[in-house]
């Protein structure tokens, strides 16, 4: 006898979600902002004086689990050095057909020469385009990555390329948590350290917003973080929406 109500009961979820805001965006015309630790296409950085940071040590190639990096070093020409020190990266190639964007190369690099931008929307029509050489990877004199015809760069995707490392720190040593550990990336400026897992964090400065927080309306109740549920959180959300509307106006 309860079958009739069960029929409508099946729509309960549908009606519940009807009232919620839309999360679908009109990709690729419109893109959702990327997380600051997004792993995308690599860049090879320079020092402020234009010298290349890469010293051709091949540690990135050694650590790469996909074997997609090929590096060869050479003696720096004494009259016109390419990088500080004895050695520079003479050949630097990344095969993006193999790269899994694990960022281990970034972690291994002793000079922060290689970092990852947030660009992942790049597709090729032939295999040789997929092998990026130093000419494509190296940033220009202003520190901006070279934009290739098949790459879809959007605002902010070239910024804060090495951000995630500040949260984890070399060797995961908690003593270094929150410390900026290398010179600024040319063109991108300094970035405040992320707080790691200790709670000391400045999300506004680092651009970090947890995914769970962004998608809280679409989570199962058990997955909602404690500080985001209940009437208190509803008031917060309302305030936030008002604030953003005011900003928009």
């Amino acid at each position: 006898m309860a079958r009739g109500t069960d029929f409508f009961g099946g729509f309960k979820l549908t009606f519940k979600h009807l009232a919620r805001p839309r999360v679908t965006v009109g990709y690729p015309g419109e893109k959702r902002p990327k997380q600051p630790r997004q792993h995308g296409r690599h860049v090879l950085n320079r020092f402020e004086d234009g010298m290349e940071k890469c010293i051709g040590c091949e540690l990135c190639a050694g650590v790469c689990p996909a074997n997609c990096i090929y590096v060869r070093g050479l003696d720096n020409p004494p009259d016109h050095p390419v990088s500080p020190g004895e050695r520079y990266g003479y050949v630097y190639e990344i095969n993006y057909l193999r790269c899994i964007h694990c960022d281990m190369c970034v972690e291994a690099c002793p000079t922060q020469a290689i970092t990852e931008s947030k660009l992942f929307e790049f597709s090729f029509t032939n295999r040789s385009d997929a092998i990026y050489t130093k000419a494509e990877l190296l940033v220009d004199d202003d520190g901006n990555p070279k934009r290739l015809p098949w790459e879809d760069w959007r605002e902010g995707e070239a910024a804060m390329t090495g951000g995630w490392m500040r949260a984890t720190s070399p060797a995961g040593d908690a003593a270094f948590e929150g410390v900026v550990q290398w010179s600024g990336e040319l063109g991108y400026g300094q970035r405040a350290p992320e707080g790691g897992q200790s709670g000391r964090r400045d999300d506004a400065a680092t651009g970090t917003k947890s995914l769970r927080r962004a998608f809280v309306r679409h989570l199962q109740p058990v997955d909602v973080p404690a500080d985001l549920s209940g009437p208190r959180a509803a008031i917060d959300r309302l305030r936030e929406r008002l604030a953003s509307r005011r900003r928009g106006a």
Partner: peptide, 9 residues
């Protein structure tokens, strides 16, 4: 052998 390769490769 100078800068010819690294030991791990």
């Amino acid at each position: 052998y100078r800068f010819a390769a690294r030991p791990w490769d």
